[in-house]
């Protein structure tokens, strides 16, 4: 296998700090946690659930009767976590556990700072230094009994916690298809490689793992020129989170000469209000030393000054 045949991959990290409004029941729970107290909710069958569910797990009815439970309890089940993953409560080996807090009837899932445990072990809450993060106000549990004096001292009235922030950061390996990889490697050499579908004979750029209308891989390679027309476009004036091109910019569908499908790219080189449907454009490549396996090698497309393509010639590409 040549290196050329291995599809291209690159990391794709997605992250966002989600803001979770809690609603009345969970607000009381989170507010109590910030005050170093734990609340459960009494269900229709009399059981006290911790954390308090908003809705009864049996009947679905809204639960509003919250009762305080202890900050120590008994391990009812546990599982070792010898190699903690990102975001988990502890960074060294610990155990996950179901902890039945004294006064509760159903257990809470959390971490216990111990490499091994036994069912029936007594554990108590270790409070986080930072408050106002809901369940994460409990840093973890640790073996031992509640220490009444210390806990009394720590308990305090806290400001209402009606919102928590939950960071979600995930890492993926993004992989291009073999067809797209050939095209990307072509870009790294300054070439635009499309492929023709054997069934419908349309030229696709980027080429597809499967022709969207025929469901078969595109096959025959077709090298395309770096010029074509703008079929249609918009002017992006709006800034947004994660944006990588500063507005305003023209996002345009570029139909290369000889291609049967347009792709989105940037048009510069004239004021946005002079970009037209049918306008002839050519690629403005970045300096060669900046090229990689990406369409970003073409910095933008710019007007060639040739006469516009007649509408009829591209109407079927809209």
């Amino acid at each position: 296998m040549t290196v050329d045949q291995v599809p291209l991959s690159a990391p794709l990290d997605i992250g966002f700090d989600y803001t979770r409004s809690l609603g009345p029941t969970l607000t009381r729970f989170a507010t109590a946690l910030a005050g170093r107290r734990v609340l459960g909710a009494r269900g229709g069958d009399g059981r006290v659930h911790v954390p308090p569910p908003e809705y009864d797990p049996v009947t679905g009815k809204a639960l509003t009767e919250l009762v305080e439970v202890a900050s120590s309890g008994t391990v009812t089940s546990w599982c070792a976590q010898p190699e903690p993953l990102a975001g988990q409560p502890l960074e060294h080996p610990f155990c996950w556990a179901f902890v039945l807090l004294d006064g509760a009837d159903t257990p809470l899932l959390h971490a216990v700072d111990a490499p091994v445990l036994r069912t029936g072990a007594r554990v108590r809450i270790r409070w986080a230094v930072e408050r106002g993060n809901g369940i994460r106000d409990i840093a973890c549990f640790e073996p031992g009994e509640e220490e009444p004096a210390a806990q009394d001292g720590a308990a305090a009235e806290a400001d209402e916690v009606a919102m928590i922030t939950t960071p979600v950061h995930l890492s993926y390996m993004h992989t291009a298809s073999p067809e797209e990889s050939r095209y990307l490697r072509g870009l790294a050499e300054g070439r635009l490689l499309g492929q023709r579908c054997p069934a419908c004979e349309k030229v696709y750029i980027p080429p597809r793992g499967a022709c969207p209308t025929d469901g078969v891989p595109t096959e025959t390679e077709v090298e395309l020129p770096d010029r074509g027309i703008v079929t249609t476009f918009c002017v992006v004036n709006v800034p947004f989170l994660g944006q990588r091109i500063p507005p305003p910019y023209v996002a345009a569908y570029i139909l290369l000469d000889g291609a049967d499908i347009a792709f989105l790219h940037l048009v510069l080189g004239c004021p946005p209000d002079q970009v037209r449907m049918g306008m002839r454009v050519e690629a403005a490549w970045r300096p060669r030393e900046q090229w990689g396996t990406t369409l970003e090698n073409i910095d933008h497309f710019r007007p060639t000054g040739e006469p516009d393509a007649p509408y009829e010639t591209y109407a079927r590409h809209l």
């Binding site: 809690l22 599982c79 996950w96 994460r136």
Partner: peptide, 17 residues
Amino acid sequence: PYSVAPLWPDAVSVAGL
């Protein structure tokens, strides 16, 4: 998403419980 996921208990650990 409120009381469990912020702790990131992974699928293997939860199955272990």
